[in-house]
Simulated assay, not measured.
Amino acid sequence: MAQSLTHGAMTLPADWRDLFALTKPRVMSLVVFTALCGLLAAPGPMHPVLAFSSILAIALGAGASGALNQWYEAGLDAKMKRTANRPLPAGRLDPQTALHFGVGLAAFSVFLMLFAANWQAAALLAVSILFYVLVYTMWLKPRTPQNIVIGGAAGAFPPLIGWVAATGTIAPLPVLLFLLIFLWTPPHFWALALFVRSDYAAAGIPMMPVVAGERATRRQILFYAIIMAAAAIAPWVLGLAGALYGWTAVLLSAAFVLLSVPVGLRTAGEGDRMQPEKRLFAFSIAYLFILFGAVVADHLWPL
């Protein structure tokens, strides 16, 4: 069971706070938003209660993935400053509680999706959870610097699941949205990895900056930013989205690439603050939120 936290003379139960922290709520917010956009952009109405339940199932599935990730990586998290205060390495939760919580939440999320939507969406949700935990966390992350590239598929599922929950079918637009997040993940995450490189090195995690070095990582960031921009504009070019989305994608993607240029061309030793990397990382989050918002706006108010 979770331990208690003492604050002054009052003892506060840490259970719900630490269990909530296991779900990685910041990551979950992006998952929920992109899934909701996929659902809202899908053709045809969906009952509000079923739609809410479907998005809740995706949120719980994402939370389960985060919990199982932290359960498996508790030892690694303890070695990194950025993650040392998480519930497991800090000793506020025992591993068995985290494991049971993660597995139970995963099972409940899949069954909820099955009853709220359809078996296709439930199957995709189950695949996304298993992919994140088994393929990314347990297999790719400790073994290859390409972990983020391949593992990015786990975070790309939500808009596809949202669409399938509403329609029961897969269509070209949600597949392109999947591809967009898949290609967005490397420059987004490697920008972060550049300024927390020492943490990954201390934990022995073969992230790209640790294994291949800063120069190679910077070039990869710029490369992925360019092909991601092409993927972002593709729905408009292919006639799957209108001008509202298209121009939003063009302007935002141009800004993303422009912010990636100083990151990609920068050489090691130019300073320790890494401001270009931090600007790119911050913008990359806003980029995805705004772009997916444009997907919904374009569907509701086509130009």
Results as ranks from 00 to 15, higher is better:
V175A: 03
L288V: 15
F281E: 13
G293N: 01
L93S: 06
K278F: 02
E270F: 02
L222H: 08
F20Y: 10
A294S: 13
T83A: 04
L125R: 08
T167H: 09
A123F: 12
L93M: 02
A191S: 15
A67H: 06
V133M: 06
H100L: 15
G293A: 14
I227T: 14
N85P: 03
Y72N: 00
V296S: 07
G61W: 00
S4H: 15
A64I: 04
L259R: 05
W163C: 07
L30A: 13
A297E: 01
D298V: 05
S253V: 01
A126N: 07
T185S: 11
Y132V: 03
L303M: 12
T34K: 08
F108S: 14
V32Y: 07
D199N: 07
H100Y: 11
M138C: 11
G155W: 08
A156I: 02
A165E: 05
L30K: 00
A62I: 00
T6G: 03
L56T: 14
L244R: 03
L134C: 11
L22G: 03
Q96L: 14
I161Q: 02
A153S: 12
V103S: 11
H7W: 13
I226D: 05
I226H: 02
D15C: 10
G38A: 00
A107M: 13
P13H: 13
Y245G: 07
R26G: 15
H7S: 13
W71M: 05
T6N: 13
A116G: 09
W139I: 00
L39C: 00
L60N: 11
L140Y: 00
R82K: 10
S54H: 04
P95V: 05
L124S: 10
M80Y: 10
S109M: 06
A90I: 00
I129C: 10
G168F: 06
V237C: 13
A234R: 09
Q220T: 13
A78I: 08
P159Q: 07
C37H: 06
F178R: 04
L134F: 13
R279F: 08
V127F: 09
F111Q: 07
P174S: 09
Y287C: 11
M228Y: 08
L160V: 06
F108Q: 03
N118K: 10
Q70R: 13
I226S: 01
A35K: 08
L176D: 09
A153E: 04
A286P: 06
I58M: 10
S29A: 15
A14I: 01
T185C: 07
P302S: 14
A193I: 09
R218N: 09
I181Q: 05
G61E: 03
P89Y: 01
A57R: 10
A84G: 10
R215M: 11
Q275R: 12
T248L: 09
A232G: 09
W119H: 04
I285M: 14
F223C: 11
P187Y: 04
H47T: 11
T23W: 10
G269N: 06
A193F: 09
I55Q: 02
L160I: 02
P48M: 02
W247A: 03
G8V: 08
L160G: 10
M46S: 08
N85Y: 09
G44T: 14
G102S: 04
V261P: 12
I161C: 08
W71K: 00
G293C: 05
S65A: 15
R197F: 09
L88R: 05
P209E: 14
I170D: 02
E277H: 14
G152D: 00
W139S: 01
G151H: 01
L130N: 00
G168I: 05
G293E: 01
L177P: 00
L5Q: 14
Y287T: 10
L222W: 04
